[in-house]
Design a protein around this nucleic acid. Structure first.
Lengths: 212, 212, 212, 212
DNA sequence: TATGAATGAGAATTCATTCAT
DNA sequence: GATGAATGAATTCTCATTCAT
């Protein structure tokens, strides 16, 4: 593909027609399928196109190069995830901190577990690209949402809100990822999640400046 | 995940001569260097060989294929890490649970942070291969060590030791990984770590069956 | 024999466009040329592609691997040869057995001698692959054709048709191959052929059950 | 190996000690085994050495290069075969032509069938090298022996001895080879052989100038 | 003399990308 | 626009041969 450097990672065209959207969706879905079936090594443009039922040429109408495809796929996924988290946070505004943490864990866990293979596939594909910007951007968005949520807690005002927030997010996201990596059985997963909530609440308790 | 064909991943020959051991070490080190400098995409056998100062042919005397190289590299790393954790756990036998957790976090954090670029490089390279077995093996070893440690605690006997142990390990390892992924600045890292210890201790407190 | 792994030997894609058919033909012809010029040892994919005036990549669009190319080349050749023999046999239906044998020797000899270098090249290339299936298939087809022909002879009904047929085919084909291997001069070839016919007729005579 | 051209194909040293002879034998036997197990494509010096229980280095003490090994192997085999045929011919001196032909077929068939896999392996390996000289030399030797035998027949003097002899040899050798290639079952083999003898005798009959 | 580690040219194969139809 | 054949640089991997020990 056009080897201009730095290469634009966004999709070439914004879909205007329904047909284009359908094609894009098919391509994204195909990418995930290939990732799952063949692994990141065998994720080739040809395979994706074939699976998506379009020609390679068509794929190149939508993505200037392969990296752009993977990038956009992850971007899309993180975008949806971020929105979900934002919604969850917004919904908890003004409630008690404990409920907030419960909701956050629930929301994230749920989002990751709905289509576990997809989660797994994307975890692997991210290693393919220079994802620093992507992840940083996602993290910033999430931080903003969770911080705002926590700040609105009716019963809690930690001494260092940012720090506590960062810990919560890092611990929750990291734990979920590790659980995936270890391939924990369903049974163990449930206990882990309860423990995780417990631990988060404990952090809130111990970092509470003064109750409101 | 990836349907890697059942190719043997172990190294082809065990080094018999001193020269061979040196060669092997050079190859491993070179792999890490290339991984750091060029990223997993540009990790080619030629590049590794060149950097290691040997010929490609030599590399293939020791590794049946590229995957085997990456696999063995990770295996080696996890082996060393496991040993370190085992030593740490052994050293804490019989102490109080709180100290144990502190030591575990300290040990793991330290191990990962000593050569952060290496850690990062390996985190990325491991996505290249079918690492289920590798990770499972490492996890089992660590679980054994930490469980034994916790069971020996002078002041603590959780109702469900295995479950608590699993949570602790998952949360600690996951948090560290996520911290790496988010590329947290040194300053924030310190606070995160203190929080993590706090949370782990809290879990121990709340799951204590009866004090000894 | 050789434990060739069960890789599909059929061509990867059937040509759909005229361009593709031309490409395929060029590749086959180039393979024969390289085989003749450089021998089976120097039959490399690069050389074939170059000679065919296409890129290596193109070759790999049509053949999954080098073996498949050689296999298909031989298959094609044997296919044509079988058709020729079948036509010859069909043309002799109902004639006298002696004429049949004459025709068969003539037909086979002719087919092999038209482009002797090609014949020689293929005899050598076939050693490269696990040709059991190929040869068996060809043999079965030929056996069917010659048996049917002999069975229709107006003047002859051997006690054991199958056995006689097998001998005739084996002797004729084997003799021709050996003549090639010994690199017999044109002059000697003529006599050999006459003798061969004589011998085949003699076999018919001596195995005749009863004349019709 | 030393790339002098034309390269000497004979073994580097004539074995003087028992040890050397044993090593040579092991190498030859290993070559055949590898040929059978892995096919001519995978016949590598390393594999042969390993199978023979010697180092590659040692192999290169005996053969200047791989071609020399294969060449010598075939040479050895053809040498033994020629000797056998010569002995057989000598033993038939002065007998009747029919007996001669019977003996020749019997002898050749026997020699090829004793270790059929070896025969098969060598048939394939010959394609690897420029065997014209080798085969020509063998053919000449055999021709001399069989011609001399036939010339001594008590009951037969063909008009054109050379021509008849050539035919006999070509037909017999070719038929046997083809039988191998077709992988004929034991049962069919027996009938084929009887037919072959019949045909050879018929040729003698029909080319007899005058009985002695 | 024997060994087997090292070599590196050369072969097979892959795959992102282009472009004529 | 869409297609898919063609491209060829880049990559993996092989193996005959050498040479220090």
């Amino acid at each position: 593909m056009a080897a201009t450097s730095p290469r634009p990672l966004a999709p070439r065209k914004r879909p205007r027609q329904a047909r284009a959207t359908a094609t894009l969706d098919a391509i994204f879905e195909a990418t995930i399928q290939v990732l799952l079936r063949d692994g990141p090594q065998r994720l080739t443009t040809t395979r994706v196109a074939e699976r998506a039922g379009v020609s390679v040429g068509t794929m190149y109408q939508y993505f200037a190069h392969k990296q752009a495809l993977i990038y956009t796929l992850n971007e899309r996924y993180l975008e949806a995830l971020a929105e979900r988290i934002e919604a969850c946070c917004a919904a908890q505004h003004g409630t008690r901190a404990n409920r907030m943490v419960e909701a956050l864990v629930e929301c994230y866990w749920q989002a990751k577990t709905e289509r576990p293979e997809v989660t797994r596939a994307l975890y692997r594909s991210v290693a393919e690209l220079d994802n620093v910007a992507l992840v940083a951007n996602f993290a910033a968005r999430v931080d903003r949402a969770t911080t705002a949520m926590l700040a609105s807690a009716s019963d809690h005002a930690p001494a260092d809100l940012d720090s506590v927030n960062r810990t919560l997010v890092t611990v929750i996201f990291g734990t979920v990822r590790n659980a995936f990596e270890r391939n924990l059985p369903e049974a163990d997963t449930e206990g882990l999640r309860r423990h995780l909530v417990t631990m988060c609440k404990a952090l809130l308790d111990q970092t509470a400046g003064q109750s409101a």
